[in-house]
Design a protein around this nucleic acid. Structure first.
Length: 108
DNA sequence: TCCTTGACTCAGT
DNA sequence: CACTGAGCCAAGG
């Protein structure tokens, strides 16, 4: 099921991710009301204005920066995250244990 | 108009 | 543990 305002909900949820945190496509899809539409989240973000939506805070379920190629340079996504205080593992993925935002309360 | 291609993920084999 | 199929559905060739 995908509510008609799925697109808007996705943008709002992404905008709600605090600095230094990241979340996954699946979590956003679920919170936006469409558990199995994770791919749509990526499509929406690719069409969204990255200057208005912090799309760099969205990674895949492994913490890999699967969307880096949609930024000015492949390195800019990682650079922006690093600037916000996000730490990376040796394999170049985000440490989800430390930075995953689940849209729950009391995480700050 | 049909076919392919994705910023994905999970269940089944 | 690796691989596959399916669900999801917008865009572009």
């Amino acid at each position: 099921m995908r509510p008609p305002d799925f697109n808007a909900r996705v943008c709002e949820l992404v905008s709600r991710i605090p600095r230094g945190k990241v979340t996954t496509y699946g979590i956003i899809a679920e919170k936006a009301g469409a558990r199995s539409s994770a791919r749509m989240v990526g499509w929406i973000l690719s069409a969204a204005d990255t200057s208005l939506v912090p799309a760099h805070r969205v990674v895949n379920r492994f913490g890999a920066l699967s969307g880096k190629h949609h930024f000015p340079t492949p390195e800019s996504m990682r650079m922006m995250l690093k600037t916000e205080g996000v730490t990376f593992l040796e394999d170049g993925t985000v440490s989800l244990e430390r930075h995953l935002w689940r849209f729950e309360e009391g995480q700050d």
